[in-house]
Nucleic acid binder design. Structure first.
Length: 931
DNA sequence: GCAAGGTC
């Protein structure tokens, strides 16, 4: 069997189809992994890397004293499978193979992925012949040629890839751990560092600094308007920017008729057709259509998987010879692009355009199949159309322009006007994405004298450099060699996920700045693209067998040790710098009471805005709990309170913008304030003026302070505080009721808990006690289904009883025993005889008596007499001596308050019989025995 | 819990 291993499933399938020719390919799915077989061959696809490099066991604890971040530099590494199913399948097939061909992509990573497959095969089959097929595009010609002339795996090329893996892991992991530990950040808030991400972040931070430090300069632009043959002409002063206002004014004053045309020059301009798409130019073009880098790539991958376009991850901007361009044109005929394709076929340029970069991995992005607008979604269609039109444009003739440059003289002041006219649109007919603005001048001739309609002097300011858009950043990353075609957009995503940068265009956060500053000051190597360049040079040397992998890694280790010498010497300083710089991230503004900073605080699931003047200043603003999302500060500020707006963010759900936290705090507490009977709008205004917003604040105030704060008399202050306490109590009960219902009644669409609560409140049910006595009809009216209502009522009753008992003073331990013995309500305790209670619960009868006394006092009932433990035991013996009385009967008798000979003798037989269920005859019998 | 690189 000839086993062929491709880089991915989709390639495996295509390779099989091509090699099989007319033969039928049998596709078999084994646990999500496909194999494609024909003749004696089986093709299987990997999933890129199916193994991953990691540190050998023992390095998982970040805080280990022995395995410090620095120790990761010299830690051994292991390769472990990440795609177990594929690994197993490859090894199963390899055992049976008599030839294995590695057919992964033709680039460094592809070679490494191939070597990984090679090692998997060798581990189970040490002798089988393994060769390598190399191809730049999965086209019949290339694939056949590659398999007819197989070569060997290039171990040096793969070793270059391995060196990269090791260096990246070692630097990234050790520095990430070091910085995170220094700044005391863990879990979701770790501070990551990496060869690609850190220089990328540094670029964004640097750009922000440039913008902040930018000092705008004023300049002036002078232009005039004239006219010929009824056509307006705008001419600019030849001086361009005037930086001197006086000079500009003088030039303006000097601009007088006659305005004479001194020179007219016509020229031709060749407007080159665009070059084929590689990943970066594609992302840039897609971003003009409004797609983010990640979106554009996701859609392109979709189109690729469905056979509409070629592989979207490529560095190549030159069509390989093997690519059959005519065939592609033909497949596009007949559809929406029919007319455009026909035009291209007719006017085809002799050689397609080519970009600067040529590589062996994949062809430039091009259409591979015809699609209809209906088959694709709106966004997919837009991207597909872009790829099709770009492809057509690369085969179209250049556009031609006629340009005119006209010089004027206005009494000594020189002016220029330029015009452009598209005389042959060429590729622009079919690629409408870049605008070609024509500026058509009237026919002008040297010596023409024209009127001056208007002279304009505009004052302008120089502008700071623009922030990076995602697509611009990807372009610059590519220029600097940072990341790859497949990872650049993901790196940006990572920076966003780490909350290092935000917004579009990208802005650094304080954390992003702090980390960049710390690395810049103490480990500058990792923030510079230079590191990637050096690594690539070293990789090049490994490929050429001039250096070895281990030698390159050893050198990198030495360098990283030096970096750590510096880092460890300043660990505390680095940590406190980051922590100080990022504190501001949580600051929303100044405290209206004391002027200290207000900060967002997170304490477990609760979060609030507190004053840094605490505990002297207790001002605080409550926020919804973090189950609604983590509170972060936004840039906008509230005009009224000067505080930054707050947003709650949660993965997977839309962010909740609270706006100004104080405005939101005030609104959500108004209703509660109005629950106080004496509260008036005027009082509310006075309270707000003193930054008192909640009933709980009022309830916690001393009357004196309240009198002073809002200028009321002592009686009124007392009353307000009492009312606030009452309101607080009601609110507490309500919130308890809300939680209680939430626990039992699951929320459902159209039946939110807010609605249920509102309906219950309207029916006068505002706490659990009211709920326990509620009419089931009321619950039904509130939209609670019957089954849930029954459960809810029972649970409410249980809870109320339990509370009543606890309030009466029964300790929790005893309470549990009572409940276990089926004694649940205060009434039970009052009416059930003490001997029964003691025997059912195992509690000492004297203790039971104490409990019963507490409950009875509370209910205003007489307490039954005490029964001692000794009396109970003696009585039990007396009863058991009577023939016919066993343990079970004693228990029954207890229920009727009969626990010894004396109580039996005095018992009311009729009543005892009905309580215990023992017949009167037998009871008389027992009493008879006593006599 | 860490990187960057494949792929989905």
């Amino acid at each position: 069997m000839h086993l062929i291993i491709a880089e991915k499933n989709i390639s495996a399938n295509r390779i099989a189809q091509i090699l099989a020719g007319n033969e039928k390919v049998k596709a078999v799915k084994e646990g999500n992994v496909y194999t494609y077989s024909f003749d004696t061959k089986t093709v299987v696809g990997l999933k890129g890397h199916v193994v991953e490099i990691d540190f050998e066991p023992g390095y998982t604890n970040w805080r280990s004293e022995v395995h410090t971040p620095r120790s990761l530099i010299d830690a051994g590494t292991v390769k472990k499978p990440t795609e177990k199913k594929i690994v197993n399948l490859i090894q199963k097939l390899a055992k049976k193979a008599d030839l294995v061909t590695i057919a992964t992509d033709y680039d460094t990573e592809g070679e490494l992925i191939g070597k990984e497959a090679y090692e998997l095969v060798r581990a189970v089959n040490p002798t089988v012949k393994i060769n390598r097929a190399r191809f730049s595009a999965i086209t019949p010609a290339e694939i056949r040629a590659a398999f007819e002339n197989p070569t060997d795996l290039d171990f040096a090329l793969a070793a270059a890839g391995e060196a990269r893996q090791t260096v990246d892991l070692m630097w990234g992991a050790s520095l990430t751990r070091f910085i995170s530990l220094a700044a005391r950040r863990g879990g979701k808030n770790i501070l990551s560092v990496g060869r690609v991400q850190s220089p990328t972040l540094a670029m964004i931070v640097d750009r922000e600094r440039e913008i902040e430090n930018f000092v705008p300069q004023t300049y002036w632009m002078l232009s005039l308007e004239t006219e010929k043959d009824g056509m307006q002409v705008e001419a600019r002063h030849t001086n361009g920017r005037f930086t001197d206002h006086d000079a500009a004014l003088a030039a303006k004053a000097g601009t007088k008729e006659p305005l004479v045309v001194t020179s007219v020059k016509e020229g031709q301009k060749n407007d080159r057709a665009p070059t084929p798409f590689d990943t970066t130019t594609f992302i840039v073009a897609a971003s003009r259509l409004g797609f983010s880098a990640a979106n554009a790539m996701r859609i392109a991958e979709d189109l690729y998987m469905n056979g509409y376009i070629s592989y979207p991850r490529t560095d190549n901007t030159v069509y390989p010879k093997s690519l059959n361009l005519d065939a592609i044109l033909n497949t596009l005929r007949g559809g929406v692009f029919d007319a455009d394709v026909a035009w291209v076929q007719q006017h085809r340029r002799p050689v397609p355009t080519r970009g600067k970069k040529e590589s062996t991995d994949h062809p430039p992005i091009h259409p591979t199949g015809a699609a209809t607008r209906e088959a694709l979604g709106q966004d997919q269609w837009k991207v597909y159309e872009l790829v099709v039109r770009r492809f057509l444009a690369t085969l179209s003739p250049d556009a031609q322009w006629v340009t005119t440059k006209c010089l004027f003289d206005a009494s000594g002041e020189p002016y220029t006007a330029t015009g452009g006219r598209l005389i042959s649109p060429g590729w622009r007919r079919i690629y409408p994405y870049s605008e070609a603005k024509e500026n058509i001048l009237p026919v002008l001739a040297e010596g023409d004298r024209l009127p001056i309609k208007k002279v304009n002097l505009e004052e302008k300011q120089t502008q700071p450099p623009a922030r990076y858009s995602q697509s611009r950043l990807i372009q610059v990353m590519e220029e600097l060699g940072l990341g790859t075609k497949s990872t650049r957009h993901e790196v940006i995503g990572k920076l966003i996920a780490r909350r290092y940068v935000e917004g579009n265009p990208l802005r650094p956060t304080l954390v992003g700045r702090a980390v960049t500053d710390a690395l810049d000051n103490h480990a500058e190597m990792i923030t510079e693209p230079e590191m990637t360049r050096t690594l690539e040079e070293h990789m090049q040397l490994i490929k050429q067998r001039e250096r070895t992998r281990d030698d390159v890694i050893a050198e990198s280790r030495k360098m990283l040790h030096k970096v750590f010498d510096k880092l460890e010497a300043h660990e505390e300083e680095i940590g406190s710098e980051i922590m100080e710089q990022t504190a501001e991230e949580h600051t929303v503004g100044l405290c209206p009471v004391c002027g200290h900073e207000l900060r967002i605080r997170h304490l477990g699931v609760s979060q609030f805005i507190g004053c840094t003047g605490y505990p002297e200043c207790r001002f605080n603003i409550s926020l919804p709990g973090s189950t609604w999302g983590r509170a972060i500060r936004l840039e906008d500020t509230c005009e009224k309170h000067g505080l930054a707006h707050v947003r709650l963010i949660q993965k997977g759900s839309r962010p909740w913008d609270l706006g100004c936290p104080l405005c939101s705090h005030i609104t959500s507490n108004l209703e509660a304030l109005r629950m106080m009977p004496s509260m008036t709008d005027d009082l509310i205004e006075r309270l707000h003026a003193r930054h008192i917003y909640t009933v709980s604040e009022i309830a916690g105030m001393r009357p004196k302070d309240l009198m002073e704060a809002i200028a009321v008399g002592e009686n009124e202050a007392d009353r307000l505080i009492e009312e606030a306490k009452d309101a607080l109590e009601i609110l507490r009960h309500r919130s308890e009721l809300r939680k209680f219902i939430r626990k039992i009644v699951p929320p459902r669409k159209g039946r939110s808990h807010a609605k249920i609560m509102q309906s219950l409140l309207e029916q006068g049910i505002g706490d659990i006690r009211a709920l326990s006595g509620a009419d089931p009809a009321a619950l039904k009216k509130a939209g609670i289904p019957e089954a849930a209502a029954t459960e809810l009522l029972e649970a409410a009753r249980g809870l109320c009883n339990e509370r009543a008992l606890r309030e009466a003073g029964i300790p929790a331990v005893s309470l549990k025993k009572y409940q276990a013995g089926g004694v649940a309500t205060p009434d039970d305790l009052c009416y059930l005889p003490i001997p029964y209670l003691a025997s059912k619960t195992g509690i000492n009868p004297e203790t039971v008596h104490k409990h019963v006394d507490m409950v009875c006092r509370r209910l205003g009932r007489p307490t039954p007499p005490k029964v001692t433990k000794a009396a109970l035991e003696r009585g039990r013996k007396e009863l058991l001596e009577i023939p016919g009385i066993g343990e079970a009967t004693v228990e029954k008798l207890y229920l009727a308050g009969i626990y010894d000979a004396a109580t039996l003798r005095e018992a009311d037989v009729d009543e005892a019989s009905s309580i215990t269920g023992i017949t009167k005859t037998r009871l008389h019998d027992y009493i008879g025995h006593l006599k």
